[in-house]
Design a protein around this nucleic acid. Structure first.
Lengths: 195, 195
DNA sequence: GTCTATAAACCGATAGAC
DNA sequence: GTCTATCGGTTTATAGAC
């Protein structure tokens, strides 16, 4: 099938998302103009509106995709039999996944406030579903008496904040390898829950 | 001394800072216009420039003040003799102080990128100085063999991220009191460092 | 599918009146 | 100290040519 000159939908669509993700994470959603995104992609600003109805929808698409991929990746992650093994799997998975997508992680933290309330609730629910995955591990370990946790809800929030924090300071080629960092965090997480 | 009609410098100055802090935290620095801040204060946009040379200087003033107050408050905080007591003091102080200023904490995390490089470095150095306070406690405890920490630098980042995370979900009048939350976090922090 | 051109609104910051 | 008015530039989003 013949296409008009300058037709590159299969390239432009993904490129808009990747450049928008990079720019939003670097400068903030409100600070980035549609013209900047278009320039980074290599098209004119008007062309963006063939791929997104408006700027907020572009942000929502990025956040929704990230959360979907996060939950899907965790669902497909192998994990051991007991709560301790499951917690170790979660800790290592969370660090590995988040470090592979630092821009998306940062965006999911910072730019939820730029979403309308309906979109906000949708992303928020996915985030809660992910947190629930960790809490269920903690509850199982608590019931099996292999964890000693004063409050599983607080432990969930504490562990996720601790693990996600890695993305704010980790730099490739730094003092410690990603594997070493994951091992150290697993050690601290394990101790924190009394395992 | 007589003043002209409409002269309220002693009220307007602090109010500009408090309203700007609230709006920047809520919507993001770039998303908030000087006109919005002025409207919240109850003056016209032009009047803001009697109190700040430009918008970025207003943001910097907020962040600098916050970091100065944080370091000053910690410097004046009573703490016990040993590393364990010092760590407990730090944990409780960090939670208490940050929960008393959630907007400033959020801003300090998210909007550093809107600072010019000179201003950025200044805030960053203050943040590092604060982190160093915690790391020195961990190092002292490690040397005294009352902590068992694989890496004091990583433990510092892990603990601060864990503790700061409280500000993202805590709501006054929620399930747990602030004192109870601090006690639970202290329990997890203590275990995490092997004390 | 992309471009150019443009509408309508808003931005940060300043000048001058009071 | 504050206001009104405004400059010069930017914004999101759309219309119509190709």
């Amino acid at each position: 099938m013949a296409r008009k000159t300058g037709s590159h939908a299969q390239i432009t669509g993904p490129k808009i998302r990747s450049e928008a993700l990079r720019l939003f994470a670097r400068h903030g959603f409100a600070a980035v103009s549609m013209r900047q995104i278009a320039a980074a992609v290599g098209v004119q600003a008007g062309a963006l509106y063939l791929y997104t109805p408006d700027k907020e929808a572009l942000l929502f698409d990025l956040l929704k995709t990230h959360m979907d991929e996060l939950l899907e990746a965790w669902a497909g992650e192998p994990r051991g039999a007991g709560p301790v093994e499951a917690l170790e799997a979660f800790v290592r998975f969370h660090i590995r996944f988040n470090l592979s997508r630092p821009d998306a992680v940062f965006l999911s933290y910072m730019e939820l406030r730029n979403l309308g309330s309906a979109n906000f609730v949708m992303i928020e629910d996915l985030r809660k579903a992910y947190e629930r995955e960790l809490e269920e591990i903690l509850i199982a370990g608590q019931q099996a008496k292999v964890f000693a946790i004063p409050d599983t809800k607080l432990a969930t929030m504490a562990l996720i904040a601790m693990l996600t924090g890695v993305t704010t300071w980790f730099r490739e080629g730094g003092r410690l390898s990603q594997a070493r960092i994951a091992a150290i965090y697993w050690d601290m997480a394990r101790k924190a829950v009394g395992a």
